[in-house]
Write a protein that binds this DNA or RNA. Structure first.
Ligand SMILES: [Mn+2]
Ligand SMILES: [Mn+2]
Ligand SMILES: [Zn+2]
Ligand SMILES: [Zn+2]
Lengths: 137, 137
DNA sequence: AAGCAATATGCAACAGTATTGCAATTTAGA
DNA sequence: TCTAAATTGCAATACTGTTGCATATTGCTT
């Protein structure tokens, strides 16, 4: 819904530009995390740098978060729980990457368990990528 | 010890070239995972492509494994438990990255716990990166 | 509705990581 | 020592991402 898109931009004090509206609308419609390259293919009329900056802006505001799946290209997905903002992200959920279809999804309801560390080490954040076969493959 | 280096190359049917001997000897001496760039700085006389291929060869043989720490540059560390080979890696241990000194270390004795996944998803491997402060920072 | 200042965009240039093809060199074994 | 196979160095290229700057657009004020 385009009104969700507009509301998100308003709530975050972001100007409603063509690029932001189209990109955010697209991101909200995706089941899986997307790369900058996919956005480039989807929106060939926006400059690639503008797309990078749009992603960066959304991430700064806590609208989307990035997922590093080891493919070389950073992927992005909308933050779900409303617990992310310009003051920081709270995305300590699991990410799943299918080894067949290569899609990356947020496993939002699975929290990363506590990890015991050796003496002297203090954890500040955790990032868990599970790879395997998804429910479609 | 250089003899460890030679034995590793022999055991894996690899020719003992200058580059492999020097690089593997260096990798065995490191406490932390190293990047290709560090090897380039350490061994300016070897071509950068040769260094890439050397790392790739070692990884294929299960001598080293890679660590993606989100920095953009892949890091490499020697496989510890002898459970890795050309038939596959068994490196489901935690990796720790210090947010201050940026060093990445293998937390070999901490196993990644079982992660429950939604219906239909099947895990094949897990990759956990913990970030925080190390015992020196 | 027009004007304005702040913001966002497009373009060009550049940096960093990594891969490929191919000719020349080196290795290991006969 | 000779040879075939493996390895190396070099040049070229791909891909991801960032920066500076001139131009265009946005949201607000008048
Ligand atoms: Mn996520
Ligand atoms: Mn490791
Ligand atoms: Zn799949
Ligand atoms: Zn540290």
């Amino acid at each position: 819904m385009i009104s969700d898109t507009i509301r998100l931009l308003n709530d975050n004090g972001l100007r409603k530009t063509d690029c932001r509206l189209d990109v955010l609308d697209f991101l909200l419609s995706q089941e899986h995390a997307v790369t900058h390259g996919q956005l480039e293919a989807e929106f060939p009329d926006f400059d690639r740098v503008t797309l990078y900056r749009t992603l960066s802006t959304f991430e700064d505001k806590g609208i989307i978060h990035d997922v590093k799946d080891g493919s070389g290209a950073t992927k992005y997905a909308v933050c779900k729980h409303g617990s992310c903002s310009e003051h920081g992200h709270d995305d300590e959920h699991v990410h799943f990457k299918c080894i067949k279809c290569e899609q990356v999804s947020c496993v939002d309801n699975v929290h990363i368990p506590h990890i015991p560390l050796p003496e002297g080490f203090r954890a500040k954040s955790k990032n868990l990528l599970v790879e395997g076969l998804c429910n479609n493959c």
